[in-house]
Simulated assay, not measured.
Amino acid sequence: MKKNLVKLLTKDKEIRLFIIDATNILERSNLKNMKTDFARQLYTNIFIDCCLLRGFLTEVDQRISVSVRFKPAGHTAHCDVDGSGNVNCTFSSQLAAFNGDFADLVGDGASLSISRASWMSGIFTGTVELKSASINSCFSYFYSKSEQTKTIFRTWIENGIARGCLIQPLPFYNINHLHFVMDSIYSAEKYMITEQWAELTIRVFPYATVVDEYIVQSECNCSKEMFFGILMSVETDELKNSIEVGKNEELECGICGKRYIFSTNDLEAIVKIKESEQDG
């Protein structure tokens, strides 16, 4: 599979960018389960934005989970991204059949939550209200509010092509340089759809250098060992309580839905490792 996510850094080292071509991987996603044109458009936008988030994952064991709760009850979206580049996005049946306007989905009671997890550092979650005029603006608002980091999401969906770009200025950036980047992308928007993927960085981003390239896919390489690491982040007392009452722990992969059962023997092994690390 070709590398379809590119990380760039402007030559002044002030702004990083990620660009994604999600066209092919959408064919293996849950897009086919959307019942309306609106749901298909919304699904594609959320899927592209979540593919871009893969660029923030620097280790294989890291994961990002995105949960969107829209205003009407039962209208939800969930997406998981892992450090191997696997992305899975699902809509509730109500949202998959929604046929109104985006404004009808946001407002009081609507929220966007993004969690980041890894074996060693545990899980960190941020939540913001959804009041923006587009889903891309909602993602941008999350990072400005929860992460205190200006982040801009752009998507282009046309003629069967689905691409996106994330722009994130680094600390101490020059605002004029950010304006230059945004103006350059705006003036070259037609190429985001029409240009061959291999030539896109040269055509649209001549002021930036390619730092890395990744493969993003709608598949899963999960394993029990991966979730063993996640349980390592659970408080030792909680694990001991499960052991005392003879309770197995079950974890479900948010990407493929596979379930992993951890017996009390597994939990005892985890507690032993955690306590030996604390003693050391």
Rank of each mutant, 00 (worst) to 15 (best):
N248E: 13
A96Y: 01
L130A: 06
N176Y: 15
V204P: 02
K32N: 07
K258P: 07
S242L: 02
I19H: 11
E14H: 05
G257T: 00
T155L: 11
I175R: 12
S223C: 04
F180G: 00
S93N: 09
V128G: 08
A110P: 04
R28T: 09
V210T: 15
A117K: 10
C138M: 13
N99G: 09
V271P: 01
F139T: 03
C165L: 14
L178W: 06
K272T: 13
E195K: 07
F180M: 08
Y141L: 04
N33D: 12
A162G: 08
Q278E: 13
F56H: 14
D80K: 00
A110R: 02
I20R: 00
S113L: 08
E219K: 04
D49C: 14
L26G: 04
L26Y: 01
D61L: 04
W156K: 07
N86G: 15
N86W: 09
I261L: 14
S263N: 08
M182H: 14
L267M: 03
A110M: 07
S113M: 08
N221M: 04
C51P: 09
S146K: 02
Y214T: 05
V234W: 02
P171S: 00
N30S: 07
C50P: 05
G83V: 01
L31F: 03
D80R: 05
D104Q: 08
V68I: 06
I25H: 02
V87K: 07
L53I: 10
L200V: 03
L200M: 03
A103I: 01
L52H: 09
S187V: 06
S29V: 02
N221V: 11
L31V: 08
Q168R: 11
E147L: 00
Q62G: 10
E14L: 02
K32E: 12
I167F: 03
L5H: 07
E213H: 05
D108G: 09
F102Q: 00
V60G: 13
F98Y: 12
G55E: 08
